[in-house]
């Protein structure tokens, strides 16, 4: 089973084992991970589930989509090359561990 490691804004790490196909935003909301607001609930409309993806595993994710790219411009924290909307990320069976760092603000 893949593992998603969330690094919360205060530096705390939360590792959660998931089924293949699990969504990074939904897993966070369902497990009380701090710092993911996800106001729009997965429609790529609010940019409040912004994360920075660590290099390891990132190459196995699909590229930033057109809509996601527009919405990342609305992210409250700085946009970087590693920025993604976690609602757009599903952890496939090819990914062993995905590490995402959560910025200190989403709104």
């Amino acid at each position: 089973m893949p593992t998603i490691v969330y690094i919360e804004p205060d530096g705390q790490r939360k590792a959660i084992q998931v089924e293949a196909g699990a969504n990074v935003m939904r897993t966070a909301v369902g497990n009380g991970v701090d710092g993911i607001v996800a106001e729009c609930g997965g429609a790529a409309m609010c940019a409040t589930c912004h994360v920075y993806v660590a290099e390891e595993g990132a190459e196995l994710l699909p590229p930033v989509g057109e809509v996601e790219n527009e919405m990342l411009e609305s992210a409250a924290a700085e946009r970087r090359d590693s920025s993604r909307l976690s609602c757009q990320l599903n952890v496939t069976s090819h990914i062993e561990t995905l590490v995402v760092r959560i910025p200190d603000r989403q709104m």
């Binding site: 909301v29 607001v37 106001e39 729009c40 609930g41 409309m45």
Partner: peptide
């Protein structure tokens, strides 16, 4: 009520939901 479905979800989730909010 995080991730409630009032505006739907997925690629067709309401595009106007932020102005509605």
């Amino acid at each position: 009520p995080a991730a409630n479905l009032a505006f739907g979800t997925g690629i067709h989730g309401c595009a106007g939901q932020m102005i509605a909010r």
